[in-house]
Simulated assay, not measured.
Amino acid sequence: MQQSRKIRRRGIKHQAKKMQMTNAKKNKYRQFLKSINIDYNNEDLFIQSFTHSSYVNEHRIRPHDDNERLEFLGDAVLELAISQYLFKYFENMSEGEMTKLRAAIVCEPSLARIADELNFGEYVLLGKGEEMTGGRKRPALLADVFESFVGAVYLDLGMDAVYNFLDEYVYPKIQEGAFSHMMDFKSQLQELIQREAQGHIQYKIVQEKGPAHCREFVSEVWLEDTQLGVGTGRSKKEAEQQAAQKALEKLNS
Rank of each mutant, 00 (worst) to 15 (best):
M132G: 06
E68T: 14
W222S: 04
V221F: 03
T99H: 07
Q2P: 00
I201V: 14
V162W: 05
S219A: 15
G199V: 09
R60L: 13
F32G: 07
G134F: 03
M132F: 08
Y171C: 02
L192C: 01
H200A: 09
D225R: 12
M98F: 02
E191K: 08
K100R: 09
L101H: 00
G151T: 04
D66K: 07
T226S: 08
E196V: 03
K88Q: 15
H200P: 02
R10V: 02
Q188Y: 02
G127D: 11
E147L: 03
I47G: 06
A140Y: 03
S180Q: 08
E71V: 01
E191H: 08
H181G: 03
P211Q: 09
K246R: 13
D75A: 08
A81T: 11
G231D: 07
Y40S: 09
L86R: 02
A239Y: 05
H59I: 06
S49V: 09
R62E: 14
S49A: 15
I201H: 02
R195G: 14
E208V: 15
M183Q: 09
E71D: 10
I7L: 12
K128V: 13
I82R: 07
K236T: 15
K137T: 14
L70W: 02
M19C: 14
H52T: 12
N119K: 10
I82T: 10
E122M: 10
